[in-house]
Amino acid sequence: MNKINIVKSSVWLAALFFSNQLLADNKEIVLQEVKKLDFNTVFARVGNCHFDVEKQDLVHSDSSVCTYSIVEKGQLKLIAEPLTTVEIEFKSNLSVEGKVIFNPEALAISELGRYSILTNKPVAVKVGASGVVDIDLGGTLKVISQLGPDLKLSASYGVEYQYIK
């Protein structure tokens, strides 16, 4: 069976960050990528690979394209006005090559709680006194079309975030 090394070059995920809303005192929300999510090497066939961000573990199935190696979770840091609420939504994207789609899932952790964020479902996250929300990133990598050997792929996702009242 062919294996494909997708960037660790493994599957690296390029994030598209969107935010244009400011609080009344013009405090912008800042989202920083601390560490890229890395699925490492996957099999070059149709199937999926799911990293459960809550359990910090790969979920294996018959259609899994994971090589059972270690997946490295992604990490983001959101900095906002303390004691506010920010709505965060992760969006999936089809790769430019049209062969891979990534459905992100995240776990946002602030001083005021833990929030599961599923693909295309906005979640209101309460920001604590520090103004910092740590976000762990996982999700499902779906290979939807046969991959060729020695092919380097990347998948991307979008993130939208804004203050809410």
Rank of each mutant, 00 (worst) to 15 (best):
K73S: 14
G138L: 02
F39T: 00
F17H: 09
G148M: 08
L31S: 04
N20C: 07
N103V: 04
Q162Y: 13
L147H: 02
V159I: 13
S10Y: 10
K8T: 11
V132I: 13
T84V: 02
A15Q: 13
I101T: 12
I29A: 01
N26D: 10
K35V: 08
V7G: 14
V86N: 03
L16C: 13
S95V: 00
D150E: 13
L118V: 11
E111T: 05
N103L: 12
L23Q: 08
N5L: 10
V123I: 12
L58W: 04
I79C: 07
K8A: 06
G131K: 02
V46C: 00
L118P: 06
D136S: 12
P104R: 00
V143S: 02
G74C: 03
I101G: 04
V11N: 08
I4T: 15
L151Y: 08
V34K: 14
Y115I: 02
C66A: 11
V159S: 03
L13C: 09
S95H: 02
V143D: 03
T140M: 07
Q162S: 11
G47Y: 00
D57P: 09
L118T: 14
V7T: 14
V59R: 09
L22Q: 11
Y157Q: 07
E105W: 13
H50Q: 09
I135M: 00
E33H: 06
Y161H: 12
K73G: 11
A14E: 15
E28G: 11
V11Q: 07
E81T: 05
I88G: 01
T41W: 06
F51H: 05
G98L: 04
L137V: 14
S19N: 15
S64I: 01
L83S: 10
I144E: 05
S154P: 11
E54M: 13
R45M: 02
A80M: 01
A15R: 10
L147P: 05
P82D: 01
V100G: 05
L58P: 13
V53S: 05
V30A: 06
S95N: 02
V7K: 15
L23G: 10
E81F: 07
L16R: 12
L13V: 14
H50G: 05
C66H: 13
V65T: 03
T85V: 10
Q75M: 11
K27W: 03
G139I: 01
V127Y: 01
Q75F: 11
S64L: 04
L13G: 10
P82A: 01
L37I: 03
I101Q: 06
S110V: 03
S154M: 12
E111I: 04
G113H: 06
N26K: 14
E54R: 15
K35Y: 07
A14P: 08
V123G: 02
L141P: 03
E72A: 12
S145N: 13
D52H: 05
I70K: 15
L83E: 14
E33P: 07
T84L: 02
I109M: 06
E111G: 03
I144N: 08
L137S: 06
I79V: 15
V143R: 06
D136E: 09
V133F: 03
V127C: 00
S19G: 12
D57Y: 12
V125W: 01
T41D: 10
F102Y: 15
S63G: 13
S10G: 14
T140R: 09
V143W: 04
N48Y: 07
E72W: 14
V59K: 09
K126G: 01
